[in-house]
Nucleic acid binder design. Structure first.
Length: 260
DNA sequence: ATGACCACATCTTGTGGA
């Protein structure tokens, strides 16, 4: 089973690119972030035509997450439990039937958090706390589960072109890492780094300053796997060629393959 | 050395992204 995550930076702006990529890559599940539209405006029919079920948790102008899946999800949850007051659409969880088993998949758009200090950073850390609670509860189910998305966390110096330049940034500060590590300590495996120690592997390049051409990127799009899923992990790849397309998103798809 | 982009809203400019 191939599970992909991709921050598309507006599904309306990215529709031709997204359709082309989904057709070519054929993921079983695609977690999207920053769709930037309400549920009714998501181009559902276009993806149904190429064989996908579409589940959306949208929002006008900002944020918004969706999950495409080749099979119809059994169960859907919008928003993080215990965080019902959150106005921002950043979390969508589904249960995907897979033969005689299931895989739980969440699409995550974790807040950016800049500038620091300030309410946006407080919101980020609070959101990460709610995410940890959910991941802890899901772990108890002892299922294959995959939390995929734009975490807005650069895990380590190897994951950024110029670590010095990011010191103090909400994606890289000590408090952010202190909120990220507990997700792993619960027992989750970050798929890409579990399989590769290669440097200069990024999932985001800024539109500005020729960041793509110079490979000045950061790795912030991740898959966190429960032990049951991690035991089946076959590969995790970054589809960086997508960044060189016409009118690209600033993020590229990251795909993990599970032996299911 | 410096600066460099893109998407959205109902707008020719401000906000947000990372």
């Amino acid at each position: 089973m191939k599970i992909a995550t991709w921050n598309v930076n507006s599904i309306k702006a990215r529709l031709p690119n997204a359709l082309e990529w989904v057709k070519a890559a054929g993921p079983d599940v695609l977690c999207m972030q920053e769709i930037k539209c309400v549920d009714e405006n998501f181009p559902t029919a276009a993806f149904e035509e190429i064989g996908y079920h579409v589940t959306v948790h949208g929002q006008k102008t900002y944020n918004g997450v969706a999950i495409l899946s080749k099979v119809s999800p059994d169960d859907v949850m919008r928003g993080l439990p215990g965080n019902e007051a959150d106005e921002q659409a950043r979390y969508l969880e589904v249960v995907i039937p897979a033969g005689d088993t299931i895989v739980r998949v969440a699409s995550i758009y974790l807040p950016n958090g800049n500038p620091v200090p300030g309410p946006k950073y407080d919101y980020k850390l609070n959101w990460m706390h709610h995410l940890k609670n959910r991941m802890q509860d899901v772990l108890k189910l002892e299922e294959m589960s995959v939390f995929s998305g734009d975490y807005n966390v650069i895990p380590a110096p190897i994951d950024v072109h110029n670590p010095k330049a990011w010191e103090g940034d909400a994606l890289y500060r000590p408090e952010t890492h202190a909120a990220w590590r507990p997700l792993l300590h619960l027992g989750y495996t970050e798929a890409f780094r579990a399989l590769s120690s290669d440097p200069e592997q990024y999932s985001f390049w800024d539109y500005q300053a020729g960041a793509w051409q110079r490979n000045h990127g950061i790795r912030i799009d991740h898959h966190l796997l429960s032990p049951q899923a991690a035991d089946r992990l076959q590969s995790c790849t970054i589809d960086k060629d997508v960044r060189a397309k016409e009118r690209p998103s600033d993020h590229v798809p990251v795909i993990c393959e599970l032996d299911i």
